[in-house]
Computed example of a mutant assay.
Amino acid sequence: MNEPRRRADATENRVRILRAAREVIANADEVRLNEIAKRAGVGQGTLYRHFPTREALLAEVYRTDVDDLVAAAPALLAGHAPLPALARWLDRVAEYASIKRGVFAALEVAVWQDLSAHSLGPIGEALTLLLDAGKADGVIRPDVDARDVILLVGYLTRLEPAEWDTRAHRLLDVILNGLRPHP
């Protein structure tokens, strides 16, 4: 069944709400819907028409980030050699993990499990695309796979907010260096 077409202003409101929610998740200790509506420049009614519950909004922020992360892999490979493409993708993973930590902290367990299932397959496929390109180019070790990398980057959700800026990208560099072939 086709979803009804949204009016242009409704689509724009939805995008602004998602952008504002993402900012609040990334920068606030508590996710407050009135703050999201205010940042998006919409009323509470508009927010609730698009997202009837707090969980629905948070889940959509998460799904959008996953979809963007997955879409970035082929786009990065189109514009960069495999290793720089993977490095740029891992930078996006750091941003994604920051949002993921905030979303998961705010969601119920059942919703979290559904979102986790949504992301692992597509993210694994995007990462496999990047790793395979690097292996073909000889800049990624042949013995690593997407699950190895996913397990390694899982630590990002364990970083404390105060140490995020100093550790996240440095630790991703450690992973990237470990993916390179060694003589």
Rank of each mutant, 00 (worst) to 15 (best):
I25V: 15
R32E: 14
V31P: 03
V31R: 07
A37N: 02
A40I: 01
T53R: 15
V42R: 00
A37L: 02
K38M: 12
R49G: 08
A28P: 10
F51K: 11
G43P: 00
N34E: 15
N27D: 13
E55V: 15
A28V: 06
N27Q: 08
T46G: 04
R49L: 13
R49C: 09
L47R: 03
E35N: 12
D29V: 14
L57R: 12
A56L: 08
V61E: 03
N34Y: 06
L57P: 08
V31K: 09
G43V: 02
R22C: 12
Y62G: 08
V24E: 03
Q44K: 12
V31N: 05
E55M: 14
E60N: 11
N34M: 08
D29K: 08
Y48H: 06
R22T: 14
R32P: 10
A28W: 05
E60R: 14
G45N: 04
T64N: 10
E60S: 14
G43M: 00
T64D: 07
T46L: 04
R63K: 14
R32S: 09
E55A: 15
G43R: 02
E23M: 13
E35K: 12
I25K: 06
V61K: 06
T53Q: 11
R63C: 09
E30P: 09
E23Q: 09
Y62M: 13
I36F: 03
G45W: 04
E55F: 10
V24Y: 04
R19H: 15
G41W: 00
A28H: 11
R19P: 13
A26S: 07
R32N: 11
